[in-house]
Structures are given as C-alpha cells and as structure tokens.
Design a protein around this nucleic acid. Structure first.
Lengths: 190, 190
DNA sequence: ATACTATACGGAGGAAGCCTCCGTTTGCAA
DNA sequence: TTGCAAACGGAGGCTTCCTCCGTATAGTAT
C-alpha cells in the first residue's frame, strides 16, 4: 500500500507519527470488522488519547475516508492496467468485479464513502475523481467496441455495484452476489 | 391502511390502545424522517413511557418490522392485482417499480427489513412470504411468455431493487434511479 | 545549553441513544 | 368490591460520539 500523506504542510514529527499509527490501526480494524469501528478503541490500540484521534480526523467520516484512500488509488491503478488489455468488455467486467469485492471487503464503507460528497480538493475527492476517470476509459472502450450500450453512465454502474454489496451485507451469499452481478452486467451489454 | 393486529390473544384494552398509538406514531415518523427514528421521541409523542414502548416492541427492529407490515401486505395485493394484467412483462416491471418506490419511501427500512431473517411464523415473516409468492407469480408469467430469462431468481431482483434504493439514499436523483432501474430490467429480460 | 512558544497531547466529561429493571397503577373477572 | 395478573412509566446504566482545556513537548532562536 502506498504510504499516504507525504506531509504537505510542515507538521511536527510526533503529529505525523500519530497520524500514521491511527490510520494504520483504523485500516486494520476496518478490514477485519467492517466500518463500524469504535473510535475510542482505535485510539486505545494506537496508544493515543481520544482527543488526538479527533484532532487528526475531526469526524468519523474523515477517518473512514482516509482509510479508504488507498483502495481508491488501487482501483484507479487497476483500471489503468486493464486499459490496455485485450478484450474491452472483459476488462470492464473485471474492474467492476474489483469494485464490488473492494466494497464488500470494506463492508458498507466503500460505497458509502465513494458516493458521498467530498470537500473540493480533498485527497479522497481527488482519488475518487481519478479513479472514476480511469474507469471511464474502460467503459468508453467497451462502448466503442459495441459491447456495452452507448448510454450507460459509469456512476450508475458503480452505484449498482455498491448497491449489490449493501443489499447483501447481512447473510452474504457468494452465489447470489454473483448472480446479481451478472444481471447488472447483462443489463449494460448490448 | 389496514388496521393491523386484530388482537389475536386477549389483551388488555389499554395495552391494545397503546400498541396502536405507538405504531401509528412510528409509521408517521418513519414516513417523514426515515428509519432513523429516535425511540424515546416516539414514546413521548405517543404519550407513553419508554418502558411501554419496549414492552410492545422489544427491539428497534421489531418496531420497524411492524411499521413495515402494511407495506408488505400492500405489495402483495398489488402483485395479485397485476397477475391478471395484459402484458406479463409490464406487470412485473410495474411491480418491481413499486418495490423500489416503497423502499425509497420507507428509506433504508424497506430493504433492510425485507431481507432480514424473521422469526418463523411472525406476522412480518408471513407477510413477506406471501408477498414474495405473489411476486413469483408475476415473474414466472413473464418467464413463461419468454420475456424474462428463465434462470432469474426473484429474491435476487428484489435485492437489486433494495440495493438501488440504498445506493441512492444520500443525494437521491430520480433520473439516476430510473436509469439504474432500467439497467436491472434490461438485465433480466431476454 | 537554555529558553520560548506554537503545536500537539490526553482524558474528563457532556450529550445522545439504547435498553433494563422494578416499584406503582389499573383493567377486569369473580 | 375486591384481588391480582397485566400493563405502565421513568430512573438510571451502558455505550459511543465528540468537545474542551490544562499539560507536555518538538523545534527554533539565542
């Protein structure tokens, strides 16, 4: 994973360290138990006061966003790699599948964070934008090759991925998820 | 709306009255502000102690379920009415659209409640089952007429409806919802 | 080295919700 | 009327969120 936050503004060393520790603990907790982390617990595991956690991440959402940043970047990279693959449709499908799996991995967080409004210019906002741009390339390529309907909107499809994840949060059944995924794929192909 | 709960077991009059009042208040609150109701507030508005509310509805979920019962019944009736309509596919699509709109109306509640596991034989469970059965008729009819793929599963489709609702909970854009709905419909048709 | 100060730390505590427990009240059957 | 099972109600415990402010310290200037 990319070591985020290269300290753009001069920051005291202890602050930077705590920031990174908190984020690391939060990421681990989210990966393991989902987005319903208890912030006091994160602070405790990070050997940091709760006040410190809140200074670095003023709201719960800020922390989730930061934790999700890496995934957004990875999804962008994935899209870029797939952009030159042979089959346009296969590339798109593969990428959408990643979107879904990442969402499932981060539990409800993925879709929730990615669909949310972000403050202009924030790290996560830029990451989401660039991820979408990379995805657009895949979609357009599949559309130009005539395999995907021309009037399909990427955001719609991404939300459908998120919707599948959310709809299966309780009692997730891999086979059902697969079938629902197939329905959507079938729905966007010509 | 049907006046639910015709007192199957002998219940003291005050208990019955409070039950109905609480449910009525909860329904109104949910319809207006979504499923994130504050239970103490419901109790206060119902002129009832919080303890009373919890005796009637031991968990938050129980209350949401009860509030949703009517909608499930209405959806079942809707399906039954549509079962004799002319176009099989139009009937199915119309019903699915209802599913989605009802879900949006009750906010996240609809899908959450309907997908959840219910105790065997509970009112809501029976209602959901009979609603699904009525829906199955519509689906099968559309499949037999060759308009919908034969391997489509109703639950999958219902979850997709719920997923669309959930994915658009923040910043709901009717046009986007329509497009996402169309994708799914297109995905289940032959 | 020392002193100074902007920056950061930490945790007590208030607020909001959820839910339980138990003493009090009341419908209603005899 | 009387008795009691059924129902009521709200104080209070628990959890989690977040704020506030006194204390500590990294980094700099002397």
């Amino acid at each position: 994973m990319s070591e985020t936050q290269v300290t753009k503004s001069p920051r005291r060393a202890d602050a930077q360290r705590n920031h990174d520790i908190i984020l690391g603990v939060a990421r681990a907790a989210i990966a393991q138990r989902g987005a319903n982390i208890v912030l006091e617990e994160i602070a405790r595991d990070a050997r940091v006061g709760i006040g410190t956690l809140y200074r670095h991440f003023p709201t719960r959402h800020d922390l989730l966003e930061a934790a999700f940043l890496d995934e957004a970047l990875e999804l962008r990279d994935r899209a870029k790699n797939l952009a030159t693959s042979e089959s346009a449709i296969a590339a798109l499908v593969s990428w959408l599948r990643c979107q879904m799996d990442f969402g499932a991995h981060g539990r409800s967080m993925g879709a929730a964070v990615m669909n949310a409004k972000h403050t202009e210019g924030s790290d996560i906002q830029l990451a989401c934008v660039s991820m979408r741009e990379a995805g657009e390339v895949l979609l357009r390529r599949a559309q130009e090759s005539g395999e995907v309907k021309p009037d399909i909107d990427l955001i719609d499809v991404l939300r459908l991925m998120g919707g599948i994840v959310m709809a299966n949060e309780n009692a997730p059944d891999p086979q059902r998820v697969d079938r629902m995924f197939e329905v959507v794929i079938s729905g966007i192909t010509s």
